[in-house]
Amino acid sequence: MTALAALIRRDLRVALRVGGGALIGVLFFLTVVVLMPFALGPDLALLKRLGPAILWLGALLASLLTLDRLFTADHDDGSLDLIVMSRAPLELACAAKAVAHWLAAGVPLIVATPVLGLLLNLDGQATLAVALTLLAGTPALTFTGMIGAALAVTLHRGGLLLAVLVLPLSIPVLIFGVAASNAAIAGPDGFGAPFSILCALSLAGLVIGPVAAAASLRHGLD
C-alpha cells in the first residue's frame, strides 16, 4: 500500500509542478467551451439546451488530451521499467497512476464546471447536475483512456491514433453522462437510472482499465 501511495504522491507532485500537464487540461476545457458559442451563435436559449452536451464533450476531449503522456513520460525516462519490475502488482500500479491522473486532471475539470455553466446560461440546478455526472463519469473516461495511453507505449506514438482508438470506447459514458444531466434539467425521465449506470461504467472501468493497461505494458516494453 505504501508503494502505491508513494506512486500517487509522486505523480500528483509532477503534475502540479512546473511543466506538469494538470492545468493545461482545464485551460483546454475552458477554450473548447468558449469556442462553442462562436460556432452555434450566442443564442442563450440554445446554449442552455446544449450546455450539458458541450460541457461533456469538452471534458471528454480534455481528459483524452492529458492522458496521452500517462505512461509514455515514465517510459521515456526509464521509470516504467522499474515500475514493471517492482514487487507491487502492475495492475495496481496502473490503477494508482490513473487515480493520480484523475485527481490532478479530472477533479479540476469538475471544479471549473460551475464557472463554465455560467457562460452557457445554465442555472444552479443544471450546473450541479452536470458537475455530479462529471464526478461520477470522468473516472470512467480516465480508465478507458489509460488503455490507449498504455497502447501508446507499445506503439511509440500517441496523439491522433490514440483518439481514434479510445473515442469509440467512451461512447457509453458520453451517452449516460448527457442523459443523466438532461434528465435532471428537463425531465421527464428520472436522474437515478442513467446516473447509476454512469457509476457502474466507472466501476467496470476500474476493473477493465488497469488489467488491460497492464497486459499491454507487459507485452509492449521491447
Binding site: R13, V18, G20, D76, D77, G78, D81, L82
Partner: peptide, 12 residues
Amino acid sequence: YLGHRDALKPAL
C-alpha cells in the same frame, strides 16, 4: 535495474 535512462523526474 540501472538502465541507460536514469528514471528521474526533473521537476522533483
